[in-house]
Design a protein around this nucleic acid. Structure first.
Lengths: 353, 353
DNA sequence: TTGAAAGCGCTAACAC
DNA sequence: GTGTTAGCGCTTTCAA
């Protein structure tokens, strides 16, 4: 077995110095035509692969990644992302990776540009962004593109001609999964999709889920199945409860998909008091309350978006790019994890490894 | 911000040489009490973290991991493990990691010791083992223990006082998940657990699943629920089909868990011809046929053991141990993934990243 | 246009 | 016991 060939070996074979080989490899000119060709040929013949460890060591400055996400203190869901990024930082600290967090206000679009600006000014080697504010994020994307700062988005995608990596889930398909999980009862039946939000910026996000949800049932071609869609605002508690009670008192209602992670607990709370009567409930994400209601049986299934791992994978992608020159995968779709009371623990345990 | 402290810095602070610091860090003795304490204190005070890049570079010999699994050509399931290991090898190749495969005959216990011996003789730096032959594997465990070769088992666990890492799933809980997924219909109802094997060595494996399956229903405390358990041998096709037809003709049968990955297609085939009549079917693993029947709707849920990732994670653990001195996690339980026709694709895509 | 040489941070062999 | 030093493979500077 031939062992790994080094620059030194190439140099010897081409009868030039290591310096010349290096210049050829990096195409930074200053090399005579003949020498260039000779080295090039040998490089290809031998299939030379640089030792990335050595390469990284020599250019061993520490690299910084800026993470732009909502304040984790404001929201349990975003706290997962925060944890994921922190976990990744720990993992990569040994490789000289450092993370700077730029936390913006989830409920205040205007807080974003300032933070984005700060992040840019810190001249990071890479950026991980949760682009929940579309227009505001677009500006940042452009800036990254111009400064050639590698960028990874996660959780939601936004349209842009700038290049970046994306990590998230197929929301349309996610809606279909929700529909499928509910569709256990014989028709006639009503199925509802419920958007309970406390902000409005992710309406596109929710619309995608709804599209999947509707399509699934449409394709069944069963006109005794009826789809309801309800939008409610978490902050208007009185109308919220009233409308929910009305919805839930429909005896035909056999299944309910709550598209926002926070919304499910409100519904569960009511069902818990008034009884479920065979209604199936599907929620999103492993928030504490959702877990509680899943264990209790009020929630039947949870679709897990795993924002913790999304963030961690985002960091890993950036690091692998910065350190090891690996390409950033343009779209990395996460599996649509289905959580039940019986496999819940296996997920909770696996998350902490 | 203080930049990273190096061994050199520590040495200066402790007024000793770099060599001494290194000796302290690696606890390989030959250091005076006073010097040891002094260095130790500074190490802790400064929170020194070695530069793994440099460490990896210097000990840059290639390391070999021996992978002992059944011949991937014999079995689709084991082919996943093979792929997982290969994928991991690619990922770690840059770090000088090499994998040697030692493939044994899945249907011939006696093929194992010879392969195990070969593996040992190759003096690998670590071993990844699928210990499907219990007694035969025990011998290998002992040998590894004596030669201090790091060892990771995956897929099944075996009892031994040798130390090793284990990667797999909680089979008991897996049986419970299967039960839960079937338990959608009102009682009275029969639920069956079906073991269709073509070899006998993993009976303990299957018994665990059955225990979970039974416990789930027992805890419901519903005496109108009846549990059936059937063992069948894939090779006796005539009795197999006869017994299956008998089982499936039971009108009370509402759910069926097939515990072996290969078994489900036989059942699906029959159901496909004769009709399902509301029977729910849960299978294991993303074999081609299982995927087909899942898409068709014959199989309702698949519990995924993800042996591809199990193998990949096993390799990663060994590499992290060899290269970065990370401890091998003694038990790494994988999530019990639930696959349906709607989230199937998201899993298939995620696997190939 | 090229070669020689000095490191990056860490390890291990060797000399004192 | 302890210090010194020669690398690991690659990059980059500097002199030729």
């Amino acid at each position: 077995m031939s062992k790994k060939i080094r620059i030194k070996d190439i140099a010897k074979m081409a009868q030039v110095s290591e310096g010349t080989v290096d210049r050829v490899i990096h195409g930074r000119g200053e090399v005579a035509e003949v020498a260039y060709k000779k080295v090039m040929t040998i490089l290809e013949e031998t299939g030379y692969k640089p030792n990335l460890i050595a390469r990284t060591l020599v250019s061993g400055k520490s690299r910084t990644i800026a993470v732009l996400i909502p304040d984790p203190g404001q929201d349990e869901y975003w706290n997962f992302s925060y944890q994921g990024a922190q976990q990744a930082e720990k993992e990569w600290a040994q490789f000289g990776i450092h993370i700077d967090f730029f936390l913006f206000d989830l409920y205040d679009k205007k807080s974003f540009p300032a933070k984005a600006d700060l992040a840019l000014r810190s001249r990071p080697n890479g950026i991980l962004l949760a682009p929940i504010f579309h227009e505001e994020s677009a500006t940042l994307l452009k800036a990254c593109h111009e400064s050639a700062i590698p960028l990874v988005l996660f959780n939601n995608k936004i349209e842009s001609n700038a290049s970046f990596g994306f990590i998230g889930q197929d929301l349309y398909q996610s809606g279909r999964v929700g529909a499928e999980l509910l569709h256990s009862q014989p028709s006639p039946a009503d199925y509802a999709i419920l958007h309970i939000y406390d902000d409005i910026h992710n309406s596109a996000h929710l619309a995608e889920k709804e599209r999947g949800f509707r399509d699934y049932f449409l394709e069944l071609n069963d006109n005794r199945i009826n789809i309801l869609s309800v939008d409610l605002n978490l902050e208007h508690e009185i109308t919220l409860v009233k409308e929910l009670n009305e919805l839930l008192s429909n005896p035909q209602l056999k299944g309910l998909l709550v598209t926002t992670s926070k919304g499910a607990s409100v519904v569960s709370n009511i069902l818990d008091k008034n009884g479920k009567h065979g209604l199936k409930l599907v929620a999103y994400d492993l928030l504490k309350e959702n877990i509680m209601y899943l264990k209790k049986g009020t929630i039947d299934f949870i679709i897990n978006q795993n924002s913790k791992r999304q963030a961690a994978v985002g960091i890993s992608q950036l690091v692998n790019h910065l350190l090891f020159k690996k390409e950033i995968i343009s779209t990395h779709l996460f599996p649509l994890e289905i959580i039940t009371s019986q496999n819940l623990n296996s997920y909770l345990m696996a998350e902490n490894i």
